[in-house]
Design a protein around this nucleic acid. Structure first.
Lengths: 144, 144
DNA sequence: CGGAATCCTCGATGATACTG
DNA sequence: CAGTATCATCGAGGATTCCG
């Protein structure tokens, strides 16, 4: 490899780093890209999506009803909808086995696994800071 | 410090690590705690909350109308609601200045800053993988 | 300026029934 | 089993008005 760095970072990353070294402000964000990113976050930062993501990360491949049973409180409609959305975004694969009774397996793609890893920090934060948040809420609720 | 490790990790962390070293399964999660964590995630993994969090992280202290102008598309009602919820959870401070016209400043607490940092990985993931997700969507939508 | 209060709508979600 | 289809609801959120 001639230049290993350029193979591991995107052109945007390198441009950012160079701006940082030159003490220049960060690049203006393309508003179109920003909207797409916000939309994407909006789709994945969803209660059911997060729970399904964590479940599949932990358990590997699961069937439709297995997921339904392990995601507390999800309706069959929302489960179908969530799984379809995640499949559409490339986060998981849906494998239909042509048998009777039907059998459909769901598993995270590498993309889905990488998202799960990215969210790991948020789960850890939530667990670590749960008590502090609950204490803040108690104080807030008790104000005058 | 006698034992620096025990000052930087919680008892639960150490117990987890010891179970891991002993090849034992992870501790069962208290369902009550799990619900609280899920609720917490549900509150913070919200579109407006995330946008306000990122904005305050980037800009520091801001006034009510400044936030409203910079968070694209948020209504005054949702802004008030989001800020109150974040204040209640201890993520930001609300400072009322007794002047006319009124002036109210909002700024992240250390807790809010740490959450923002935890979410950083998700934003980076979204930016890095946006093209891949959009490609997956295009392929999915074009199936048969 | 920084809200609170009110009304209203519509889309997300649940419940139910049906099916390959 | 793994959905689809249909109907019903209900509450999140927008628009508007008023106020200290």
């Amino acid at each position: 490899m001639e230049n290993p760095l350029e193979n591991r970072f995107t052109a945007a990353d390198i441009a950012d780093a160079e701006r940082y070294m030159a003490h220049e402000p960060p690049a203006e964000i393309d508003p179109r890209i920003e909207r797409l990113v916000n939309d994407l976050i909006g789709r994945i930062a969803d209660k059911w999506t997060l729970l399904v993501l964590e479940l599949l990360e932990e358990k590997g491949t699961l069937r439709f009803t297995q997921i339904g049973r392990q995601v507390e409180g999800i309706s069959q409609k929302m489960l179908t909808q969530t799984l379809r959305q995640m499949e559409r975004d490339g986060l998981l694969t849906r494998t239909v086995h042509p048998v009777v009774p039907p059998r459909v397996d769901y598993a995270l793609t590498p993309l889905g696994n990488s998202l799960s890893a990215a969210f790991c920090g948020v789960w850890v934060w939530a667990e670590r800071n749960l008590e502090m948040v609950e204490a803040a809420r108690a104080t807030f609720d008790a104000r005058d």
